[in-house]
Simulated assay, not measured.
Amino acid sequence: MTITQLSYVLAVAEYKNFTLAAEKCFVTQPTLSMQIQKLEDELDVLIFDRSKKPIMLTEVGEKIVNQAKNTVNEAGRIKDIVDQQKGYIGGEFKVGIIPTVMPTLLPMFLNNFIKKYPKVSLIIEEQTTEEIIKKLKNGHLDCAIAATPLEEDNLKEIVLYYEPFVAYVPEKHASFDKKEITTEDLDLDSILLLQDGHCFRNGILNLCKNNKYIVDSHFQLESGSFETLIKLADEGLGTTLLPYLHTLDLNEKNKAKLRPFKDPKPAREVSLIYPKNELKIHIINALRDVISGVVRGAIAFSDIEIISPKFKK
């Protein structure tokens, strides 16, 4: 039994297809199939039911896959131990970032990180929270940056910063003349939201539910970007909420339409997320330190109320 054979088994279990699994492992399909067959012969069991489409794990195969995940991860930890002992911070590192954080946070820290850790090859993907959770658990991401708490088994969260919600209020809106607002000032019949699948949308829904509003039927205008929401608001179609960092790059005319919430300000918690058995914890710590250093100067709020990114029905 070899680590390579177990890795091939994990690939087939995930993709449920020998050809696709071979592509992902960068080997030919006959090579992958032969190694899995050798493992099955050695163990004298069938790991996969090849008669099913897509290919399915047998009962004993499911148990083998669960143990194989631990074995492959622990084997990878040996190189991680050596790297940490040598003080080496480098190699390929895959990071997922949610769409509402990527455009504001990434430009703030990426250049600093690259200069400080030139041997790390960052591979950054923009993913929804749901996709991030799946990829972290399947080993396709080393860590991610997303709104928390997510309360997911086998995932750890390190808080990076707290980012308040800020209202964007058009000039003709009743709350435009107020210096600070509350959720009661929001026009719930015409508030503009990101499309379903964005955790920032869930945060707004939860914020309003926390204030005892029944809002499910009110949110009708949706878009895939904050820029579009701002333009819709300027056209008199409603108000919207923005994450604080996104407001920093607005022009002065649009900044004049921003209204902060009264304390405690509703805010989202943004964290580094990674598997509990993550091998590259030294790179995660380096990423945390760089991000915390650049964000600390941009966000300084103390009296806040964390709004969950998980939709509450």
Rank of each mutant, 00 (worst) to 15 (best):
Q5K: 11
K16W: 01
T31Q: 15
L32A: 06
Q37D: 14
Q37V: 12
E40Y: 08
L43N: 12
D49R: 02
R50M: 02
K52V: 11
K53N: 10
K63F: 10
K63P: 05
Q67H: 09
K69D: 00
V72T: 02
E74D: 14
E74P: 05
D83N: 11
I98P: 02
P99M: 04
V101F: 12
P103L: 01
T104D: 10
L105V: 08
F109K: 04
L110V: 11
F113I: 03
K116F: 09
L122N: 04
I123M: 10
I124G: 03
C143K: 03
T148Y: 02
D153P: 15
K156S: 03
E157R: 03
V159W: 04
V169R: 04
P170V: 03
K179S: 12
E180S: 08
E180M: 10
T183C: 14
E184N: 15
D185H: 07
L193C: 11
Q195L: 00
D196T: 15
H198Q: 06
N210T: 11
N210P: 14
L221S: 15
S223I: 06
G224Q: 13
S225F: 12
E227T: 03
P243I: 02
T247A: 00
R259C: 15
F261L: 02
N277Y: 07
I283D: 10
A298N: 15
F311W: 10
K313I: 14
